[in-house]
Amino acid sequence: MPRLLLLLALVLALPSSAQSARALNSEGFRLYQEGKYPEALEKFEAAAKADPKHALAHYNVAATLGVLRKKGEICQYSAHRETILERLNTAIRLDPRRLARAKEDADLDPIRDTVGWQRHLGRSPAKQGDVPELLRRVTWYSPGEGVYGSTRKLTFSEGQRVVLWRRIIDDDANPGRTEEVSGTYTVKGRSITLTFPGKKPLPGKMTPKGVLQFEELGTFLDSPSECEA
């Protein structure tokens, strides 16, 4: 019996991956509180790697990426909306209680207007009845065009109003020029029709996966294309 107890004591004395993850996460939180967000992110990532089932570490990665995105440091730390959602989804899958915290966490504001976040609120593009609400709740971006990234954006609001934002990339004299055009829209099932002044109506639809597809305007997703070389 004494030998067995000795072996047990030695095993308990060894640092486990879970213990290491908790220590790394605590160190990351201290750095986060000090405003040292890149350093905090490194610790949170290390904690999640040490123990992939550590829900809080994944959550803290998502929240810290959200802060870095707010600060405009997107490309330096890959603080993309889809990356933040991926880490948040992992945290919620491991610990569903994380969702309640996420709903109140200002660090995650950059992903509120995504299809992925709306799924957490019970809205799904697979449900035809949710299409009108998703249109209004989500900001929609075109795929990237080389170094310009997304050059078109659609926002929908109450009163069946729609705004199309465009970056004009064929104006050599003013390559940063943008324009906004306001119009109206109608929804019937999955079908969406956009109408802009002086233009013929543009038919489109929302797919069950949450992608907008319009004739002439093309495809729109819930995250912009960023950091393209």
Rank of each mutant, 00 (worst) to 15 (best):
L8T: 13
R177I: 08
R97N: 12
G144H: 00
A63G: 14
H80I: 01
A62M: 01
G210W: 06
S26K: 13
E86C: 02
Q76S: 14
E158R: 14
A63D: 11
K153F: 02
E39K: 05
S17D: 12
P175N: 07
G204F: 01
Q19M: 10
S182H: 11
Y37D: 11
N89Y: 03
D105Q: 06
K103D: 06
L221N: 14
P143A: 06
E216A: 11
T219L: 11
F196S: 08
A50R: 01
P96F: 00
A48C: 01
Y37I: 03
L31A: 05
I169Y: 04
W165S: 10
L154P: 07
A229C: 01
R3S: 15
R97I: 04
Q213C: 06
V181F: 05
T139P: 04
P197W: 05
K43N: 13
P96M: 01
L65Y: 01
Q160H: 13
V131P: 09
R119V: 06
E180T: 15
K199A: 15
A55L: 05
T83S: 14
T139Y: 05
K71W: 03
A40W: 01
R119Y: 00
L14I: 10
P96I: 00
K205Y: 13
K153R: 15
L12Y: 08
C227W: 00
I92Q: 06
T178I: 12
F196L: 13
P203H: 07
A100E: 14
Y77D: 11
R190S: 12
